[in-house]
């Protein structure tokens, strides 16, 4: 039997998480409370996992930090510092929906020049939007209002609303509208430019230069096309062959490019620390 690829494992985990957050409110409804919460704060049998941005907002407004919040956000940020923003590509259910939307639009919509490279621009726009959002929060809001921009939280909240109180949340339409815009634009707009929750994860991963990254070896690369298979595979349309921090910043370590490259020359692979450099 064929050994499952990284992408198979990743999809399994993503779908598993997405299904788990449907089941958890249902189990809670039947009084099984080993797992509670949503993507803002979650207890896995006593172990807290908290959205770092929610903790930041609460700490900034209340000058307060509880042990659970510290541990929960610490785990999330520590994971990002060690393995990169794997939350976005391996866990986040909106990321899964967004990826499916992308592959669907790639199949259905006519293929234009998708080769538009977006080096680093995404993160720059995200810095500006995050700054504006945080300033707005500090000036005008007393509640952690940026939590409302967390799409995975809305995903889990839809099922909390439904199974706990039989309320069908109109947030479904909100999520569908964003997916539709991304589908039409053929870009993962929310994840790349807006999602404020991922900003702190990116910041945490940039602190650690020896985190998990995608390494590239020029001498093993067999592709000489303008649009190499690895770039085609990347749902964020990054070019894994370009070395440097601009791509690393946005890369979520999903490993799709590594899988695509395996058929060609095995020039790409996961590794800790700096990227390979071709002998120059």
């Amino acid at each position: 039997m064929k050994k499952p690829s990284i992408k198979t494992w990743r999809r399994a985990l993503q779908i598993g998480v997405a299904v788990a957050f449907i089941l958890i409110p249902l189990l809670n409804h039947f009084r099984i409370n080993y797992f509670t919460g949503n993507f803002l704060a979650f207890y896995a049998a006593g172990l807290p996992l908290v959205d770092p941005l929610a903790v930041l907002q609460i700490t900034l407004k209340n000058y307060y930090l509880s042990v659970d919040l510290l541990v929960g956000a610490g785990i999330a940020l520590g994971l990002a510092a060690a393995l990169g923003t794997v939350f976005c590509s391996w866990v986040c259910p909106f990321g899964l929906l967004s990826e499916w939307g992308q592959s669907l639009s790639g199949r259905l919509l006519p293929r234009a020049d998708k080769g538009m490279s977006v080096k680093g621009r995404g993160f720059r726009i995200k810095i500006i939007l995050f700054g504006l959002g945080l300033a707005g929060f500090l000036l005008f809001s007393t509640t952690p209002v940026l939590n409302q921009l967390s799409l995975p939280a809305w995903y889990s909240r839809i099922f909390q609303f439904y199974f706990e109180q039989r309320h069908i949340s109109l947030a479904i339409l909100f999520l569908l509208a964003i997916l539709l815009v991304e589908f039409a634009a053929r870009q993962r707009l929310w994840c790349r430019y807006i999602c404020p929750q991922s900003f702190l994860l990116i910041a945490a991963k940039l602190i650690n230069p020896s985190r998990l990254k995608i390494g590239f070896q020029q001498d093993k690369c067999l592709s000489n096309k303008a649009m190499s298979p690895c770039q085609k595979a990347c749902s964020l349309s990054l070019d894994p062959k370009t070395l440097g921090e601009s791509v690393d910043t946005e890369c979520t370590n999903c490993g799709d490019c590594v899988v695509a490259c395996k058929r060609m020359g095995r020039a790409l692979g996961f590794q800790f620390g700096l990227r390979y450099r071709n002998s120059d």
Binding site: G37, N38, L40, T143, Q160
Partner: peptide, 21 residues
């Protein structure tokens, strides 16, 4: 309101189903 994370865990552990989000 400044502290509530809106995580809904209070509603999930309520055995009397009185807390609603």
């Amino acid at each position: 309101l400044a502290r509530c994370l809106q995580c809904g865990q209070c509603a999930q552990v309520c055995i009397f189903d009185c807390i609603r989000m």
